[in-house]
Write a protein that binds this DNA or RNA. Structure first.
Lengths: 250, 250
DNA sequence: TGTAAATGAATGATTTTGATTGATTTTTGA
DNA sequence: TCAAAAATCAATCAAAATCATTCATTTACA
């Protein structure tokens, strides 16, 4: 039996069973233990499978790639400062939209306004919001597994029934020419619509997002006030020509 | 049996039952007590489960000691049985609605159908659904703090955009004259609309709900198939005259 | 035919396993 | 409530299974 044949057979068996014993493979291929071991070593090096004691297993997806938990350790302090600053803009009686994301999530504990109503597409925000006894509306729609954000047609439909005093949006890129951007077009549409439905809009982004642009455009710079944590004077002037910008001092 | 296989099996069993006894695992895997203990130690270190005296439990489960293992499983046993039975009705390719509530939540780990899509108004269901990689849509609307269910105008609006092969509804009362009832009128409206939008409807309720009625009516008995855990023959005949009823055997 | 690659058997090292021990925790029953 | 009994536990150890490595032999192919 050819090496390539064996490799194919091994991977097929693995795909079917998720775990295979070395002895099973010896039988299935009528080759020696040594050969199978060599095969497994090679296939492991090629990242086609994962060796385990006694055989091999599928290399199942490394759970949460950049899940909320992992992300939350990144630039956390800056994000907290930005969030705290943004929370000031919420005033008594406001009806606001809070976008899904780690920065906007940080806002919630810092909101002290009374009698507000919050609408959000971030399932992760719920716990913090209910903890503070804030009446909360969730958008409908498809749940994005990685970020637990609500997106898609359903989210847009739900949004259409509301309008807001203020909205707070997280973005992945702020760029003088390309405006506000985020990687997922579905999310971009939700953010974009929320902006349109708000009397006043705020975009939250730490300095790593400045002068960056990603795939899907949300809106032009003019559409919102930027809140960020750090910006040299040259860039500040550039952006100030287009829209209001708040730089949080450390 | 390979270590990998055992670990998978242990976690699967745990996901279904929430608590497992060490002896059950010994039987299920046909390995020795020592081996299972080692497995549990390792899985605990990996934060995949929590060891309790006599076995293991899910992580996010409330802190309750071994007594949980005996008693809590007893209290929840009926609901779990009903849920497990109901989960059988979900078939490959189905698009289903799962109502908020503890009994319906129990269904999720027992669903084995492929390529299904789930719509729900229960925020608590999300974790279990995403864990199983089931594409999930959430209704919009107001969050009810106590139960984390989505209700109100927004929820009804969201629902209108869907239709289902099957729906699984929890109720607080089933009564020959008053039909299906639940205490909160807002929730009743959501349940009622979900029923109307389904080709086939199932109502899940343990025996304590039989012959009871509460404030808000959801629908007449005819509107759904009842799944319950215990019913004397006299009552069974009474209900069978009106609708299909499945009694789960212990 | 000659050469390089692949194979299989043998070696000793490493890992996993199940049984046993005595310690600890929980349950039982007075 | 308490103490004895039962169940469960962690730790240890030897046997079994699996491992990486080496080396002689076979196979593939120019």
């Amino acid at each position: 039996m050819l090496t390539e044949e064996r490799h194919r057979l091994i991977l097929d068996l693995l795909a079917e069973k998720k775990v295979v014993k070395l002895q099973e493979l010896v039988e299935a291929t009528s080759s020696s233990e040594s050969t199978i071991r060599r095969d497994l070593s090679q296939l492991e090096k090629e990242k086609k499978l994962r060796r385990v004691h006694g055989g091999a297993a599928l290399l199942h997806q490394k759970r949460e790639e950049l899940s909320v938990l992992e992300k939350s350790t990144k630039n956390m302090e800056e994000k907290r400062l930005i969030a705290q600053y943004a929370a000031q803009f919420v005033q008594d009686g406001d009806c606001i939209y809070i976008d899904a994301g780690t920065t906007t999530l940080e806002m919630i504990p810092h909101i002290h306004a009374k009698d507000i109503v919050v609408v959000t597409n971030g399932v992760t925000h719920l716990e913090a919001l209910l903890e503070k006894d804030i009446p909360t509306y969730l958008l409908g729609g498809l749940i994005k597994k990685k970020t637990k954000a609500l997106i898609g047609r359903g989210a847009l439909h739900s949004l259409e029934h509301y309008s807001f005093d203020k909205c707070f949006i997280g973005v992945n890129g702020i760029h003088h020419d390309f405006g506000y951007t985020t990687p997922d077009p579905e999310e971009a549409m939700v953010k974009s619509l929320a902006l349109k439905l708000s009397r006043q809009a705020y975009v939250l982004a730490d300095h790593s997002k400045m002068n960056e642009s990603t795939f899907a455009k949300i809106a032009d710079l003019e559409a919102a006030t930027i809140i960020t944590d750090e910006l040299d004077d040259e860039l500040l002037a550039l952006y100030e020509a287009k829209t209001a910008i708040e730089v949080v001092k450390k």
